[in-house]
Design a protein around this nucleic acid. Structure first.
Length: 593
RNA sequence: GGUUCGGUAGCUCAGCUGGAUAGAGCAACAGCCUUCUAAGCUGUGGGUCCCGGGUUCGAAUCCCGGCCGAAUCACCA
């Protein structure tokens, strides 16, 4: 709800009351942006009043229009009525005042602190393989959501739960032990996470060989999978890990440290960060304790085989295993422990889990279990569920080698940006190699981030590795470029930026100002709906609108001083909003490109 | 099979809390740089908004029923 809408809703409310005796809520007054085919900035939809008014839509629109334009405090310059649509042209004075307010507001678009704390969990990698495109979507969404909620007044704690234990890690460790010959990141020059990932793949290859061998000897496949020596060894290793075997723990710590160094580098390149990192190796025992407590309080039950279960049938779900018969914990058990520790560490008012939609069932169960265990936050948790990234031939599968590696992808994007910008940047003669590299980095990553974030998070999205991500059109670089052009103008301006109340504004200027006034609502809505895509699409429209204005009108060469000043203010405000909005997406803006 | 989500231009996506003639980008075609950065701007062509009913002044949008696709319903995480 911005100022324009507030004023008009109030005025329309009193109009229909005075004219027809209809009582309406301000919020029920329907306003929309005027379609380009008609003259006007904003349109009042009068259909809701025609029945009670017992007049034709056209007449009602005319009457309300007349009323609005004749008010003492009217902001309506002209109006026209078409069918049931009342199109209003708002006074230049109103637009100029709005522009100046935006220009002067240092924190435009940000809501004041609401005094509440939101924790956002995202990323949550396994430590047995490097990050891929699926993780990239997760990380970008998580980081952006954190920024957006901050702008909406929340104190945000970004957190990461690292899945650093379990059979999958043992597989990598075992393969390294058996086939690694002591290879290290240093000795091989590989990034730590990639090194470990290679051994995870190696395990799978050798494991499959063993299965094949066993089935050829006449064993059925399921048995072969269980009986393969490698699998047995991996399970053995997991058991030793749980028992705290020194040698295994040491190996585990060694390999994890390599992976973390690799992840840190990926996160740094991606530009995401965390305020607090949790490790499942530290939280799963807490989870087991909570399950034991629930058991003793009669909230869960033990089967004859010693396994522990929760009965969720009354909630429309099924029974859920919480502890295996050997007492080891499962995925959900760890999440219970992690949740408990987090609430011990922080006064969390809202907990958000950025996790793919494949885990919707999991979070329904988690919510119910936490609630049942007496945690007041159980019911309130938010599973920010996003869609998968698909390749042209379907889902990414690590085993089939169809994953798009995060590091490779980012480097490729930066290289592409370098290629594209080579000629263009050369036009600006004083850009050196260092700045050129920095520009390529921002542009390449900007293209990637925008490409991913502009899509509605709920939906699955398609990535075709064969087609490079665009740098033209509805893209990150388009917006960065618009920003760089404005900054170029502002650098060349040496006059003070002020505004004169008698200045005129043309259609394109009004359109731009109007779009700028919508920014706070967009931020609010993006926060309410957890949707960076709303920010992305708004930013594109704003940049697009500016480019059209830029093409048609000169700023620095405008001879009318008042108009020039107003345009400088408009350009500056546009740059401010563009960069503010892109920051909410985690996208950096180059000053030149 | 149950549940959830999706189906809009050749492709990738907006629009979905009901409003005017359904929008962008890419791709195709035609124009615009001696003028603040052409990663830009302007124009042309391109649609059974999956199908069928219903609700009403009005439906891509809401409801019901189909069809198609995805996810999930693990002692994997």
């Amino acid at each position: 709800m911005n100022q324009l809408e507030q004023i008009l809703q109030k005025q329309v409310k009193s109009a229909v009351n005075d004219l027809y005796g209809i009582e309406v809520e301000c919020s029920s007054v329907q306003l929309q942006k005027t379609k380009p085919a008609f003259e006007g900035n904003i349109t009042v939809v009068v259909f809701p009043y025609v029945k009670t008014a017992r007049k034709a839509p056209q007449a009602v629109a005319e009457e309300i229009g007349k009323y609005l334009s004749e008010l003492q405090e009217s902001i309506t310059l002209r109006y026209n009525a078409v069918q049931g649509f009342l199109n209003l042209v708002i006074t230049p004075d109103f637009w100029l005042k709005s522009l100046e307010e935006i220009y002067r507001d240092e924190t435009y678009g940000r809501l004041p602190q609401n005094g509440q704390l939101m924790m956002v969990e995202y990323s949550s990698p396994n430590t047995n393989k490097p990050l891929h495109l699926g993780h990239v979507r997760n990380n970008l969404l998580g980081y952006s959501i954190a920024k957006i909620q901050e702008a909406n007044g929340w104190q945000v704690v970004k957190t990461n739960i690292v899945n650093d234990r379990g059979i999958h890690i043992c597989k990598s460790m075992l393969a390294w032990q058996l086939f690694g010959n002591g290879e290290t990141p240093e000795s091989s020059g590989k990034k730590g996470d990639h090194l470990i990932g290679d051994y995870y793949v190696r395990f799978d290859i050798e494991y499959k060989k063993q299965i094949k061998q066993l089935t050829e000897q006449g064993m059925d496949e399921d048995t072969a999978k269980r009986e393969a020596p490698l699998m047995k060894q991996a399970q053995q290793m997991l058991l030793k890990w749980e028992q705290g075997d020194k040698e295994i723990r040491q190996l585990w710590e060694q390999m994890n440290s390599w992976v973390y160094a690799g992840f840190d580098e990926t996160y740094r390149t991606m530009g995401v960060s965390f305020d607090k990192i949790y490790y499942e190796s530290n939280t799963y025992l807490e989870g087991k304790k909570e399950v034991e407590r629930g058991l003793s309080e009669g909230k869960f039950y033990r089967r004859e085989d010693n396994s522990v279960w929760a009965d969720l049938r009354q909630d429309g779900l099924d029974e859920k295993l919480l502890l295996r018969q050997d007492g080891t914990s499962v995925y959900i058990t760890q999440d219970i422990g992690t949740a408990k520790l987090r609430y011990q560490d922080y006064p969390i008012d809202k907990m958000v889990y950025v996790v793919g939609n494949e885990q919707e069932y999991h979070f329904k169960v988690l919510s119910l279990l936490l609630d049942r265990l007496g945690f007041p936050f159980g019911k309130e948790l938010v599973h920010f569920s996003y869609g998968m990234v698909e390749l042209p031939n379907g889902k990414m599968k690590s085993r089939e080698g169809t994953v798009v590696d995060a590091d490779d992808l980012m480097q490729q994007m930066i290289a592409d940006a370098k290629e594209v910008s080579k000629d263009k940047v050369n036009k600006i003669t004083d850009i050196g190699q260092a700045e050129a590299d920095e520009i390529a980095r921002k542009v390449g990553l900007g293209a990637l981030k925008y490409f991913i974030l502009k899509v509605d998070p709920k939906k699955n999205m398609l990535f075709n590795p064969e087609e490079s991500i665009d740098f033209n059109g509805n893209t990150g670089p388009f917006i960065q470029y618009t920003y760089a052009r404005i900054k170029s103008i502002l650098r060349k301006n040496d006059t003070e930026i002020n505004i004169d109340a008698t200045t005129t504004v043309n259609d394109k200027e009004v359109s731009l100002i109007q779009m700028l006034t919508q920014y706070p609502q967009v931020v609010k809505q993006a926060g309410d709906e957890f949707s960076p895509a709303l920010i992305a699409n708004y930013t594109y429209q704003l940049a697009s609108e500016f480019n059209s204005f830029y093409h048609d009108y000169s700023i620095l060469n405008e001879t009318d001083k008042n108009i020039r000043q107003m345009r400088l203010m408009l350009a500056s405000s546009t740059a401010k909003v563009l960069s503010s909005a892109m920051a909410l997406l985690g996208i950096e803006m180059p000053e030149r490109m």
